[in-house]
Design a protein around this nucleic acid. Structure first.
Lengths: 199, 199
DNA sequence: TCTATAATACCGACCGGTCGGTATGTATTC
DNA sequence: GAATACATACCGACCGGTCGGTATTATAGA
């Protein structure tokens, strides 16, 4: 009854978790493989049994992050009320993202940093952005055609929405306790919609 | 006629430039002091004559960046038309910032990364944000009192404006050639103002 | 003005330590 | 008894920082 596989998978995930924590706290270069192993309660042998290099673990974590982004985006697509309502309902999702990201900001910065250096990784990072932009773009297009929104330029507006989301997210991560971020997000989106909706 | 001082300052600035380039391309940890020296055409002796550590050069560059931010903010304060006009005129400044930052994104990420790790540095990074937020807050307050703007919450609105600026900046840095960013900024601000202004 | 001396600016070999990765051994499971 | 899952010991490269020394320039006294 595959006892080995079970054990193997557990150590693997323990290594991943330990690596994530350490990367977040000490950064990629500041994190030693030995430290990861110590935190995971195993030794280097286990580490290099599961991963080919330190970079390898990092990329695994990176891919998992991208996957989570995809899932978030999928959630966004589920909605199907009027476009403005849809956009407003996004704020709760933003809050979710913020909480999930809390305390993990540094590792995302690490992702970004590496992405800027390696063109391939960079592309992997950018593509979700394109997807989000396209999603927003579609929503705006729909909003315009259904008559609830002004006749704005869909792509530009999509970038604007993305900017607001990104900008508020960063501020929220930078100083989590400084404001009621869900409320700020809510009000911000409301203001934005006031500029986008027909009256 | 202070020939020594002149030479000294030149090597120092050469070291700073070399360090900045290397940090941007290879990151802080990926950059060796020896490499910086090689790029600057001097040796370690010169380096440690001018700086106490690798961290020291980094912090010097960081402080220079913050200074530049201050200067940008000072430019913002010069304006004195009506608040909405003032906000619109900011877009040209955004463009300036974008161009100045172009190709330097990685080192700013490096700044952020370190800032998240060291509370003191973090504070240095955050404080300009507070200043910008306060500046925008004042502007909104003025706009409300002069009757050109709706009665929105100044702080929240300030955060929103900051978010737009930050979000668009990041997108612009991530894919500089992907759009006419000055135009996008212009239109975005216009939409935002439509949501903020009384009609 | 010439010189002695101090100060500055810089050189470059070297060290202590760290860290990613490997090679080999061992225990447990299939 | 073969394969899997991990442990242990170790290597070699690299890197930040040091330190004794040198060359050049500034300074002060005669």
């Amino acid at each position: 009854m595959d006892k080995q596989r079970q054990r193997s998978e557990e150590t693997r995930s323990r290594l991943l978790e330990a690596a994530e924590r350490s990367f977040a706290q000490q950064g990629f270069d500041g994190t030693g493989v030995a430290k990861i192993c110590q935190a995971a309660g195993v030794t280097k042998g286990a580490f290099y049994h599961h991963f080919s290099s330190k970079e390898d673990v990092f990329m695994e974590l990176f891919r998992r992050w991208l996957e989570r982004l995809e899932i978030q985006m999928a959630k966004l697509r589920e909605n199907s009320a009027s476009v403005p309502e849809e956009l407003l309902s996004m704020t709760s999702l933003m809050q979710e993202v913020l909480q999930a990201t809390e305390g993990q900001f540094p590792i995302y910065l690490e992702f970004w940093t590496r992405a800027m250096r390696d063109p391939a990784i960079r592309q992997e990072l950018i593509s979700p952005f394109y997807r989000y932009r396209d999603l927003f773009s579609e929503m705006v297009l729909k909003g315009v055609s259904e008559g609830t929104m002004k006749e704005v330029h869909p792509e530009t507006t999509a970038r604007l929405i993305l900017a607001v989301a990104l900008g508020l997210l960063i501020q929220g991560l930078l100083e989590p306790q400084e404001a009621e971020w869900d409320q700020v997000t809510q009000e911000s989106m409301q203001i934005l919609l006031d500029g986008l909706m027909k009256r």
